Simulated assay, not measured.
Amino acid sequence: MKITLVRGDITEQHADALVNAANSSLLGGGGVDGAIHRKGGPDILAECRALRASRFGRGLPTGQAVATTAGRLHARWVIHTVGPVHQGADSDPEPLASCYRESLRVADELGARTVAFPAISTGVYRWPMEDAARIAVDTVKAARTSVEEVRFVLFDDRAHEAFAARLR
């Protein structure tokens, strides 16, 4: 599998699947989640509401992933995953690693060959960037997947440098 880094906006990416750093409600929010819902349009929200009404009445659990249409985005699917909130030095990295593994599992089920990830949990969920990059890159490298390209789409220079340092 090829791993690439891009500095930019995930909503501008052309890929089979874009990963959304969602909140558990699946109904949109701030950051990546809000941007994907705004740019992708109402079809994403409609499918998220249907998921809430059927399988995820209490919301999507942390570390799990589920797919919807990508609406008006340049992708076939959005894979929604809920990252953990960083609680300090004792924070368990496993739920964050699970976001990447589960997103790739869903991508495989869909037949996606290219998947674009944001830096999950590094915004309002406060996961330290260098640690998040380590978890993301190491988890993706170790994953058994048919995905041919994983693209980390990083919003700023600090994130890009943290991920680049981990890939070196």
Rank of each mutant, 00 (worst) to 15 (best):
I36T: 01
R38A: 13
R52S: 08
F117D: 03
G34L: 03
A35K: 01
L60F: 13
A46T: 11
R55G: 13
Q87I: 12
L60Q: 11
T69C: 11
H37I: 12
R52M: 13
R52C: 12
V32F: 00
E47R: 01
P61A: 09
R58K: 15
P93S: 01
P84H: 06
A65T: 12
E94D: 13
H86S: 14
G40Q: 09
L45D: 03
T62S: 13
H74G: 07
A112K: 10
G29E: 04
G59H: 03
A53D: 14
G71V: 06
V85Q: 14
G31K: 13
V32H: 03
Y100H: 12
Q64T: 03
G29F: 09
P84W: 02
R72L: 13
G28K: 07
A67I: 01
G88C: 09
V115R: 10
L60R: 12
P93D: 00
A107M: 03
P42S: 15
R72N: 15
A112L: 06
H80E: 02
G29W: 07
L27T: 07
T69Y: 05
L104Q: 06
G28F: 05
A89N: 14
L60S: 09
A116T: 15
G41A: 01
L73S: 03
G71F: 07
S91L: 00
G40T: 09
C99Q: 06
A112W: 10
G30N: 08
R76V: 04
G83Q: 04
R52T: 12
T69W: 06
Y100W: 11
L104M: 06
R38M: 07
G63A: 09
E102C: 14
A50D: 15
P84F: 05
Y100C: 11
L51W: 15
G31C: 12
G59D: 09
V78L: 03
V115N: 08
A107K: 04
G28Q: 09
S54K: 13
S54Y: 02
R55Q: 15
R105L: 08
I44S: 02
L26N: 06
L96F: 04
A97P: 05
T62L: 09
G71W: 02
A116F: 04
L110N: 05
V66I: 14
A89T: 15
A53Q: 15
G34M: 03
G63K: 07
R72F: 12
T68V: 05
C99Y: 08
G29D: 04
C48L: 08
D92N: 13
P93Y: 00
P61M: 10
A67K: 01
V66K: 00
A89C: 06
H37T: 11
A112N: 10
G40A: 10
L51K: 11
P95R: 04
H37E: 07
